[in-house]
Write a protein that binds this DNA or RNA. Structure first.
Lengths: 220, 220
DNA sequence: ACCTGAACACCGTTCAAGT
DNA sequence: ACCTGAACACCGTTCAAGT
């Protein structure tokens, strides 16, 4: 209301809206994210946003393409395997940073950064010598793994018990698991000793897939 | 309002609420799904639902566990590879039927059907001779692939253009792709000839992963 | 050209009341 | 014991007005 709000009253712009939108979603997830809340963060009335973005859906699509632009593109300087490996590792890191984007990366109406990245991946495979059909398969299995792993990692990150009640419920569940679900009990017992590093876990599956593709390429 | 509403006025029960909820979500997706809309479908006032479920979140969790219960459990009668393969193929089919569940399967506080299935998968791997650590990796790569593929298939399913404007926009994009993104242009050109079957596409990547796991098992 | 205020048609959910 | 009605605190968005 008063001119002494904490947000500096610079002119609004699409870039500034997008930046604030991503910061808000990064911080609070998709549930906290909304037009009214975003306007508040920018020190502006909700309707001011609609001069810079058509609606919420268009805004989210633009945010998604910014996320895509942060993913490394397989450079033609590297061999196909290193290029794809770096791109996949980068994608996981980016999706960790912007975990609200995880369910939305595969949206209809892909943006330019999305197209650029996917074109480069497909190019990398074709130039390596994969047939068109095999390149399609290889492309599909990689992206499914990347997005699926990011999803798993996200919910694992939410496992941190929020309050004492949650923790107690979880403990009770673990005890029941001991009786009915011996193999889950083994996980609960051993994984807390070993620890669990998502980055190396991701790399293990990624290398399994890339090994498989490499064998296919050598066999032809 | 009048006693002649189309829904038969049988007594409400948690089972009846869940059944109607899944039917509604299957039909209209998560966006159409809501407490008020669900109540309307059951011919009841919104608040009547709250005697049978605590809130929307608890309701969705219960729905998710029903989805889990529809996924085949790897039977101990089969060899490990066939068991896991059948379970994965079944998971994809179930997620196709209930595509609203795709982002939510890996939720915190898993239900009993979830625990049962995951325990059986882990047991299948351990009994096949995989070490604990390798079994964890194998488990992770499979589920990441299954959920990631389901996500991709879901958005591919939404690609069907809704109106003429959409179709025109998509065509324009394809033309631009020809110039800037030759490898995407190749996909657009060739994939419409070949056709694309999600089930065989899914099996290709699944077999690549299972082959890799099989080689690991034989090497030890 | 850019921002605002009031309003509309929605949510999930609480609370006090009906039968 | 089960269902209802009115209300509360939210949404995204439209429309007419301000500067």
């Amino acid at each position: 209301m008063s001119p002494t709000t904490d947000a500096p009253r610079r002119r609004l712009s699409k870039a500034r809206v997008l930046e604030a939108a991503i910061a808000l979603a990064d911080h609070g997830g998709l549930e906290e994210f909304g037009m009214r809340r975003l306007a508040q963060e920018l020190g502006v009335v909700p309707m001011a946003l609609y001069k810079h973005v058509a609606n919420k859906e268009e805004l989210v699509n633009a945010m998604i393409d910014i996320v895509f632009s942060e993913i490394e593109i397989p450079s033609s300087g590297l061999d196909w395997r290193s290029g794809l490996r770096r791109r996949a590792m980068s994608a996981r890191e980016v999706l960790k940073r912007h975990s609200w984007a995880i369910g939305l990366m595969e949206t209809a109406s892909p943006g330019p950064a999305n197209l650029r990245n996917h074109n480069a991946v497909m190019g990398c495979l074709r130039e390596a010598g994969f047939s068109f059909q095999t390149a399609i398969h290889a492309y599909s299995v990689q992206d499914a793994y990347i997005y699926g792993f990011a999803m798993q990692e996200k919910t694992l990150g939410l496992q941190a018990p929020r309050d004492a009640g949650d923790a107690a419920r979880r403990r009770a569940q673990t005890i029941r698991a001991h009786e009915e679900f011996p193999y889950l009990a083994e996980i609960a017992a051993k994984l807390s000793e070993t620890g669990y590093d998502p980055a190396t876990e991701f790399a293990w599956g990624l290398d399994l897939i890339l090994d498989g593709l490499d064998q296919l390429l050598r066999a032809t």
